[in-house]
């Protein structure tokens, strides 16, 4: 987007009168699509037994899973920012050869089934894996089936959301503000702190929310790489899956927790990417 035409950075006024009519035959599939998204969640709510709900929600099993989920998701979100943020900047601004290949590789976890990602992590960091063997023998560190493994699995799956979001916003904004800062005598580090970062804050907010939500819902990679050990690796999604086999009501109650967290994320944080604006 080019900022403004005549008046600096103002957007052109949105004109309500210029709305385009939606062709009638498209309304039916649109309604079906909406039903497909909303009805299952509503169905879940009807399955709730209000009398047992407080007990189920405060069961040690549910509380442990919620606690673990929130902790690991926050850590993997922080890890995504610390590592993925710089990666986004490199992808958007540097002119290294082969950058297009790197950009495609970053997208890999987005399209790869999480289970495959979990297997890949296991064969890299497992006891017999290339890196895992080294860590075990030299540092005495074991990663699979630990809380660290949960964090790694979540970061693997969720970080690309942050990288893609930030990189897109950096590329749309262009480097023009950074160039102005350079002409004002600001070196690369000062420009990053005083120009790039403040300009990136709005996009960072929405990318963070998406990354956190994705980490919170992670299942496939976690169960493959970290297993489902109560208290250390059994996050909320894993707990729901395990509990559903024996106590459906308890599983539904835990699902309700995730639904509530998701709604909070959408309503309170209101990520722009979710609203269809970038």
């Amino acid at each position: 987007m080019r900022f403004g035409t005549r008046r600096g950075t103002r957007r052109p006024p949105a004109s309500a009168s210029a709305r385009v009519r939606v062709p009638v035959p498209l309304w039916l599939p649109a309604i079906v699509a909406l039903a497909l998204v909303v009805l299952p969640v509503l169905g879940l709510l009807t399955r709730i037994d209000p009398t047992r709900l407080p007990t189920l929600l405060t069961s040690p099993e549910a509380l442990a899973a919620l606690n673990l989920s929130l902790h690991t998701s926050l850590i993997s979100t922080a890890l995504s920012v610390v590592l993925g943020g710089p990666l986004a900047l490199v992808l958007a601004r540097s002119r290294l050869p082969g950058l297009r290949v790197v950009r495609a590789l970053v997208l890999l976890p987005l399209v790869l089934p999480p289970v495959v990602g979990g297997l890949a992590l296991l064969y890299l960091l497992g006891r017999t894996g290339v890196l895992g063997g080294l860590l075990e023998n030299v540092f005495g560190l074991t990663i699979p089936y630990t809380t660290s493994a949960v964090v790694l699995a979540q970061t693997f799956v969720a970080m690309p959301f942050l990288v893609v979001g930030l990189e897109g916003s950096l590329r749309t904004a262009g480097a023009r503000y950074e160039q102005v800062a350079a002409t004002l005598g600001a070196g690369p580090w000062l420009t990053f702190r005083r120009v790039t970062l403040p300009l990136l804050l709005p996009a960072l907010g929405s990318s963070l929310v998406l990354t956190f939500a994705r980490a919170l819902g992670e299942f496939g990679a976690t169960i493959t790489f970290a297993g489902s050990l109560r208290g250390t690796t059994r996050t909320l999604p894993l707990a729901i899956y395990t509990t559903a086999q024996s106590d459906v009501d308890a599983a539904v109650a835990m699902s309700l927790l995730l639904v509530v967290i998701a709604l909070v994320v959408i309503v309170v944080a209101r990520p722009k990417a979710v609203e269809g604006r970038s």
């Binding site: 900022f3 403004g4 600096g8 950075t9 023009r176 503000y177 160039q179 102005v180 800062a181 350079a182 002409t183 004002l184 005598g185 600001a186 070196g187 690369p188 420009t191 005083r194 120009v195 403040p198 300009l199 804050l201």
Partner: peptide, 29 residues
């Protein structure tokens, strides 16, 4: 490098930093 040359640039678009007041924009240099 650009930031060591001491060139002042006024372009077609003002490109004021949107998160700073006019005063802090001018104080940036």
């Amino acid at each position: 490098a650009t930031h060591r040359r001491g060139v002042g640039l006024l372009a077609q678009q003002p490109l004021l930093f949107p998160y700073l007041s006019a005063l802090d924009n001018v104080a940036f240099g």
